[in-house]
Structures are given as C-alpha cells and as structure tokens.
Design a protein around this nucleic acid. Structure first.
Length: 493
DNA sequence: ATCCTACTAAACATAC
DNA sequence: GGTATGTTTAGTAGGA
C-alpha cells in the first residue's frame, strides 16, 4: 500500500508536479482523514469544485514548497508544457474534457473502460463493474484517503501553477505590448487583465516623465481600466526613450500636473522598479512626496528619502550624485516640501495644499475641453495624459464606496477630467500596493505629526497648511476653491 | 514665440 | 578639511 502511494508520488515528482519534498508529502499521506473530510475531498478532487474555489483554496493553502516566493516550485519550463492529461498520475488520467463528458451520465473516475483512480487503471467492462470495483478497491480507508490527499495536492499545485503561468503570460503580453483581447498598435498602452491584481488599476498609460509614443495622442483609451499590467507599459516603451532608458538624464515630458497615480503605479510595479534599472516615470517631487507620505510619521530626513529612493528603485542606486542633487533641489525648490526642525535634526514633510496649489490650471473651467470629453469617447482627441487622467479619475471614483454602478460612473467620470492633480486623488484611493504600506485616503491626507515641535515655523502659510491643509475637508482659501470644485461628487451629480 | 515645468549641473553656505 | 545638508542660480528641453 505504501509502495503504491510512493510510486504515485514519485510519478508526480518526476513530472515536476509535486515538489520534491517527500517528507512533507508522506506526512500528509499518513495523515488520516475523517470521513467528513473525505466528502469534501471527493467534491474537490472530482471536479465539482469550481475553479475559483479551487484557486482560492490553493491560495489559502499553506504550501510549504512555495509559500511566499513568486517563482514556481516546479521547473518552469517543464511545467509549462506538461500536457494536462499526463499531469495527473502520469499516464492514467485523460484530459479534462473527457472527464467532463463522462461526468454526464457516467463517472468521473471511469473512462475508456478503465478505472481512473490514481494508480489503479483496473479494467472495467461497464459501469456496473466499475462501481463494484470502486466500492471494493477504493473504499473509504486509509489508502484511499491518502491517495485522495495526494490528488488534492496535485490539483492545488496545478491551480497554483496555472495562476503563475497566467501571470507570466500577462507579463509577456505586457512586454510585447499586446492586449489580451484585441491586438493594438505597438505603442498602444496596454490594459491587461491579470489574474493577480485584476481590478486594481493600471496606472497611466503614459506616465509622466516618459515620452509618449507617437500615436499616443490619438490612441483610444479605455475609460475604465480593464485591468492592470503587471508592469506598466510605460516602463517598457524603451523605444521611445532609448537614449535615456535606464541611464542618463531624461527629460520629463509630462509635467507633474497630469501625474501618474504614483502610489498605484508603484504598488503595481514596485518589484519591477526595485529590480529593473528603469527610471520611474514620476517627477522627483512626486516621488519625494510619496516617500514622505508613505512613512509612518509623514516625515523623512533627507537621508531617509535617499534610502527610500534606493530601496524602491534600482535606477537610483546608480547615478547617485545626479539624483540626490535633484532631490535636494526639489525639496528646497517646492514649497510643498516643508522642512521641520527636529531635535535630532531636520525632517521633511509634505504640505498637501501647496502640492495642490503648485498644480497648473485645470481643465475644469474649459467648456470646450469638457465638451469634447462628454461628446463621447472623445478620448482619442485628448492628450494621452489627459486620457490617463480620465481613466484614473474614473477608477478613483469607482473605487469610492459611494460610487455609482460602473457604467454610469464611467460616463460621469468623463466630467471629472482635468483635476489638477489626478494623481493625488487617485493615489489616495489606489495606494494599496503589496510592496508599500497601504495609504488610505485618510492616511494620505492625514496631518503630519511632527516628532518635535518645530522651532522655526516659516513665516508663510506653510505651518498652518501643514496641519490644516492636508485634509480634503478643510476650508480652503478662496484662491483654492477650484480645487474643491473638482471634487468628484460635485461633478458627478 | 512665449511661458511654464521638470531636470540637470553647479556654486555656495552652513553644520557637524 | 571632508561630508552631509540645504539654497540658489543657470541652462536645457519639451509641452501648452
């Protein structure tokens, strides 16, 4: 009996289906199951369970072999090409299709005149004989239970593998600038639906800082991001900035006004930026702000900002002199960055109001532009940045709990264009990345808690706005009324 | 053509 | 003096 089980496991291992951890596997084999467990087990193994459920289960399962890593426990190249029918128990399992067909009026464990119980292959002339065989040979006992467990593991591994292969496929498509459903021009920003982060947003089609592909201005955009790219397409448009790709200076063509929702972008692609020597498509100011807001106290020393840059972006591990100087320059230059004296030294904080103020005039007041947007999928005529902003706005609204149903929200969101800082709005909503701490809207607009009382408050409004200005519900000065007017809710209804 | 923004580079000041 | 930090200016480039 044990031999049979081991043989089965060995078969799986040979094909890379079960991690080469015989100890763990055998533990599970020897682990007895109660009959109630078996019922569930049968359901799962026999395919009654939906794929989603199986996936969920697989995700929730503590698979010791590949618990946290992003790489498969299997040899990828091999596992990707294993025919399904050969995956299960080596040779005895027929393709899923057959199983499904036979399920109707027959038995999933019976097909082609033989028992499909793993490792059995007993020939049965008809269903009656098979049932008899099933009851005799595969009754509820330790062996069957153990085999069931093994089979369950196989299924789970396959589910995991499927998810990973799907993810890989998405990444490949992203790299090749493809769209899942419809082929688009090479330059088209992609909105891939991926299994992992499906409904999170893709950031900008063309994040700031990276030159837009020639066709971007007329490229249609999906008002509602269908799904994220594993890696933002912008990062992959190397052809458009080849001379600066990854190294050297780069002129940011997109101003920060239409800035990418950096939080979501980083959340989506943090691993990418962490490892790839690709310049992040954000302005220094955006990055600095994000770094500061991401910190627990909403304040960072210069050195901590440096560390954040190097920690988050492989690109900034090089060219130290350049970007550090730029960081310092930005900190000093922009009013939105407030230096606060501390006991231990100086920390930098973000004045959200100033950050908003420095944004250029919005499109809100431009009837023509608004008209274009309303006039229907006039997205094509919009600047890509605006398109991206559009999409971001839509997404931010959709993410809002009080939002409308997607279609109406989508159409209404068209009005919400030109928010001078789409990023700020969206960032607050979408900053739920896995790599960086989640920043809720409240968190983003959370007042800065200075560790020590500032000793030298600036003469201007900075200190005041530092505390009061970071809350969106605050009373704004008259000259900032337009910011308030851009609140989605007001434009929606 | 002009203005604005972002980026880079550099000089300079200050504190440790 | 060296380094880190902070400020300011100048020049460049692209978009509006």
């Amino acid at each position: 009996m044990q031999q049979l089980q081991q043989q089965h496991i060995l078969n799986l291992q040979r094909q890379g289906l079960v991690p080469m951890q015989p100890t763990a596997t055998m533990q599970s084999l020897q682990q007895a199951m109660c009959p109630s467990d078996l019922q569930q087990l049968w359901k799962e193994v026999s395919g009654i369970q939906s794929s989603e459920e199986a996936l969920k289960q697989a995700e929730g399962l503590d698979l010791s072999t590949n618990s946290s890593n992003s790489t498969s426990a299997f040899p990828k190249a091999a596992s990707a090409h294993i025919p399904l029918h050969s995956l299960i128990n080596g040779q005895s399992h027929t393709p899923k299709r057959d199983s499904h067909e036979e399920h109707v009026g027959s038995h999933p464990l019976y097909g082609h005149g033989e028992c499909k119980w793993p490792g059995c292959e007993a020939l049965c002339e008809d269903m009656g004989q098979f049932i008899k065989h099933l009851n005799n040979e595969h009754a509820l006992d330790d062996r069957s239970t153990a085999q069931c467990r093994v089979q369950m593991q196989v299924v789970q591994q396959l589910e995991i593998q499927l998810a990973k292969e799907s993810e890989r496929l998405q990444a490949m498509m992203a790299h090749l600038h493809m769209r899942p459903s419809e082929p688009k021009p090479f330059n088209q920003p992609l909105n891939l639906a991926s299994s992992g982060s499906l409904l999170k947003r893709d950031s900008d089609a063309y994040p700031e800082g990276l030159p837009h592909p020639p066709t971007s201005a007329t490229a249609p955009i999906t008002p509602l991001r269908q799904g994220p790219s594993v890696i933002s397409s912008s990062s992959l448009h190397t052809h458009s900035h080849s001379h600066t790709h990854g190294v050297g200076p780069i002129r940011r063509r997109n101003s920060d006004k239409y800035c990418t929702p950096i939080a979501s972008e980083l959340a989506q692609n943090c691993e990418f930026y962490k490892n790839a020597d690709v310049r992040p498509p954000f302005t220094y100011a955006s990055l600095i702000r994000h770094a500061i807001l991401e910190s627990p106290d909403r304040q960072l020393t210069l050195n901590e900002i440096y560390n954040w840059f190097t920690r988050k972006f492989a690109y900034f591990r090089r060219n130290t002199a350049t970007w550090k100087n730029a960081v310092r320059h930005n900190l000093s230059l922009h009013k939105c960055f407030v230096r606060v004296e501390n006991v231990k030294g100086a920390v930098w904080t973000v004045d959200e109001v100033e950050y908003q103020k420095r944004r250029p005039p919005k499109m809100t007041g431009s009837p023509t532009l608004v008209k274009n947007m309303i006039s229907g999928l006039g997205f094509g005529s919009l600047n890509a940045s605006y398109q991206a902003a559009l999409a971001e706005s839509s997404l931010s609204l959709l993410n809002s709990p009080s939002m409308l149903s997607p279609p109406s929200a989508a159409s209404l969101n068209m009005l919400h264009v030109g928010h001078d800082d789409v990023s700020s709005t969206v960032e607050q909503v979408n900053s739920n990345g896995s790599c960086s701490p989640t920043l809720s809207p409240q968190q983003y607009s959370h007042p800065v808690h200075v560790k020590e009382e500032p000793t030298d408050l600036e003469e201007d409004s900075r200190p005041v706005s530092l505390l009061a200005g970071v809350t969106h519900s605050m009373a704004l000065p008259s000259d900032e009324r337009d910011l308030e007017e851009d609140l989605p809710t007001e434009e929606l209804e």
